[in-house]
Design a protein around this nucleic acid. Structure first.
Lengths: 244, 244
DNA sequence: TTTTGAAAAATCATCGATTATTTGTCAAGC
DNA sequence: GCTTGACAAATAATCGATGATTTTTCAAAA
């Protein structure tokens, strides 16, 4: 399952950062490029708003034109790349209004998906939630060590996706993944230090505990607050860097 | 870049061989293909679940491989096409569970977008809503004349999109468009006659009236019911044709 | 100085051919 | 009869070259 009705997102999967393993379903150059390009954009290596010159990209990724164009075309659905006829591809720009929309939609979509998960999720899903929480709590996040930030981002993303993974709505999940991707780009670009006035660990624990207890209102309220606080935080950092 | 007021415009309009293309931003073969393929899938010309043979598609659309692959890659984001490495593209299959998810997400997304539109939409948006309603009411829908069904589908789609077009949330709007596309494929494939126990015109009018009156709860409730009824209707038709 | 427009350069889009992979066929072996 | 594996056919993926469009350059004209 590469992509499909359930994945408008092209398979970012659990570990897009993984080096090329022979058979992880990414057999073609185009598919590998999708992962590599997505990671390059989310991590900020490819600057927001910048034009993607096909000749240069061809060289820097050591690929030919056909798979490169195909990969970029697929990435449009992630909202990470924009396209215009005869003017080529560019990295989607960042803006305050874009961040605000992402935050709003995450609040709506993820709380809806969480509610659905609590309604129809099975025991295995509950277990996955607790495991994801545990991993997250055990993962260090030290601004002095960049590699821990990368690792933390991956585990954090996995936690939020696991929370809503029980909802049995593949289209909804793909939308949530897309929003999470977009959101993570802002965090990885603008939020290198964690905000002092929050205990994010406690927030995650409350969400997870409420979730496995199937306390819909409590869990969804905590999740919504959590997303909202992150949005507020990011907005401040954007403002500091003078981004409108 | 348009010519200035005083400049001489040399019309190259003697070109009788080709109709001059209106500049709707669909200048490339790939972009035109996206539209043509999308229409072919939504209308059912390309059967749900069927494999898309590149050689045959190349011939039947009179195009080369590169723009065809690029167009298909872009269509993945619409949820209308699936892809698997080395196995190519196929038209997304239809299923009861898929239809149910689409209906649920339309209820959630469109009511949210409608509420937002009522909150921040301007007068021009209100006018657009009333105009779209009027057009819809004036468009005939006769099962005996297939061309009226096509026309009605277009106007109906436009009405629903106009309703939520005031929300100022471009990502949300694109998600709604995607869901509407998927939904329309079900309707155009399975629902050739209109259900007798509904007065769809009244439903649309109530939604529009409530909307311009900014009665959020009323308008959203009517919209949700409207979407839900359509879903129930379609579900019955799918069941009749034995689709799981 | 600013504007204009044609030529040059850069870049994007498309094509036909080649390579790689999957799928279908069929006879040998169990 | 059923499986197996080599071979052939069909199909997908990639490449290098060519055609089309956009952008830049720069000198002449206003």
């Amino acid at each position: 399952m590469q992509s499909g009705p359930g994945s408008l997102i092209l398979e970012s999967g659990a570990d897009a950062a993984m080096p090329s393993f022979p058979d992880d379903g990414k057999n073609t150059i185009a598919s590998q490029l999708v992962s590599r390009l997505r990671e390059a954009i989310i991590s900020g290596q490819l600057e927001a708003g910048s034009k993607i010159n096909l000749d240069r990209a061809k060289q820097s990724f050591n690929v030919s034109l056909s798979p490169l164009r195909e990969a970029l075309a697929r990435l449009i659905s992630d909202g990470l790349v924009e396209f215009e006829d005869n003017r080529g591809y560019r990295v989607s720009p960042v803006s305050l209004s874009n961040l605000e929309e992402i935050t709003s939609l995450r609040e709506e979509f993820e709380t809806y998906a969480l509610r659905e998960s609590m309604r129809v999720g099975d025991v295995e899903w509950e277990g996955n939630v607790m495991r994801a929480l545990h991993r997250l709590n055990r993962t260090e996040r030290d601004a002095a060590k960049p590699e821990t930030l990368e690792q933390w981002e991956a585990v954090h993303r996995e936690f939020h996706l696991t929370l809503i993974s029980g909802c049995r709505k593949p289209l909804l999940l793909s939308f949530c993944k897309t929003m999470l991707n977009l959101n993570d780009r802002y965090r990885r670009t603008f939020l290198t230090r964690t905000s002092g006035d929050r205990n994010v660990s406690v927030e995650h624990s409350e969400i997870a505990q409420g979730t496995v207890a199937r306390d819909m209102d409590y869990a969804c309220d905590r999740l919504r607050e959590h997303i909202h606080r992150t949005g507020t935080n990011l907005r401040r950092h954007l403002a500091e860097k003078g981004i409108a």
